[in-house]
């Protein structure tokens, strides 16, 4: 069997996604199945110019250079996988999406100067077609293994299209949204983390991003939060942490607050 050519590319991020995968013991099993063409974290001889079968992209698009880079990756890769909340949803750095770039810049860098042209953080999908997504901040090892394993047998991995609540219930946790009225984002957040936070009695903040396919019901959940006394701003602020680019978010929440009582 021909080896699968893999590339791992980083845009603006904390590098946590790569680290998560680079540290996996299972990565050794890949060595006779795959050639790593480009992955600076694990291989010095990496080259962004090489063609690959599977390209993993981590990080949000935040500079002009990054736009060029991902366009190049798209051309040279058969399958493009967006990895982690930054690449998929623009990451937590998109939280301040409604502020001016200059203001954000000043807050972080003061008067410091850099060589690149900064832009507002954006998801990779805003620029190129993405074929598959590995959700999370950071993503789960098991999702990475599942996707790779499935590609290696010549099949296509399933996307996760259901919310964290499902896993929370499968684990038999108490529901903190019902019981304590905590603003858990589990009902609209993509599953796969095995309901990590609710399992520790902590409300989900949605780090895996809202479920796709139009089944993230920001409106219904906002209505619930509103009943529990949260203001529109509080709800928006919380749901925006990882979903700032979601086109439905504001529209749905506005709708709920226009409904009145």
């Amino acid at each position: 069997m021909e080896k699968v050519r893999i590339g791992f590319y980083a845009l603006t991020s904390c590098y946590g996604c790569q680290l998560q995968f680079a540290m996996m013991d299972e990565i050794v099993q890949l060595l006779d199945k795959a050639n790593i063409e480009c992955w600076f974290m694990v291989d010095r001889d990496s080259d962004e110019e090489r063609e690959v079968d599977i390209a993993f992209i981590e990080g949000s698009v935040s500079t002009q250079e990054e736009i060029e880079l991902i366009k190049k990756i798209r051309e040279k890769a058969k399958i493009v996988i967006a990895v982690g909340s930054c690449a998929i949803h623009g990451g937590v750095q998109s939280w301040g999406k409604d502020k001016e770039l200059e203001e954000l810049w000043k807050t972080v860098y003061g008067d410091g100067r850099v060589k690149f042209e900064p832009k507002m953080a954006e998801p990779v999908e805003n620029y190129i077609k993405v074929d598959y997504k590995l959700y999370g901040c950071p993503p789960e090892k098991k999702d990475f293994l599942y996707a790779l394993g499935t590609f290696l047998i010549g099949s296509w991995p399933e996307d996760i299209d259901y919310p964290v609540c499902v896993e929370c219930r499968l684990n038999g946790n108490p529901c903190i949204l019902i019981e304590k009225g905590e603003p858990c984002l589990g009902p609209l957040t993509t599953a796969g983390c095995d309901a990590r936070c609710p399992s520790f009695n902590i409300a989900c903040i949605g780090c895996r991003g809202a479920v796709g396919y139009g089944v993230a019901w920001f409106d219904s959940l906002a209505r619930e939060f509103k009943k529990k006394g949260l203001t529109k701003e509080e709800i928006l602020e919380r749901m925006r942490i990882f979903n700032a680019h979601n086109p439905k978010l504001e529209e749905m929440i506005n709708k709920v607050f226009e409904e009145g009582e």
């Binding site: 299972e26 099993q29 890949l30 199945k33 293994l145 790779l148 394993g149 290696l152 499902v166």
Partner: peptide
């Protein structure tokens, strides 16, 4: 599937008709 390109497991979990 495992990473060997050959073996693997089938799993099941409770489903819900409220899901897409």
């Amino acid at each position: 599937p495992n990473l060997d390109g050959d073996t693997g497991v089938r799993i099941r979990r409770w489903d819900s008709c409220q899901l897409r």
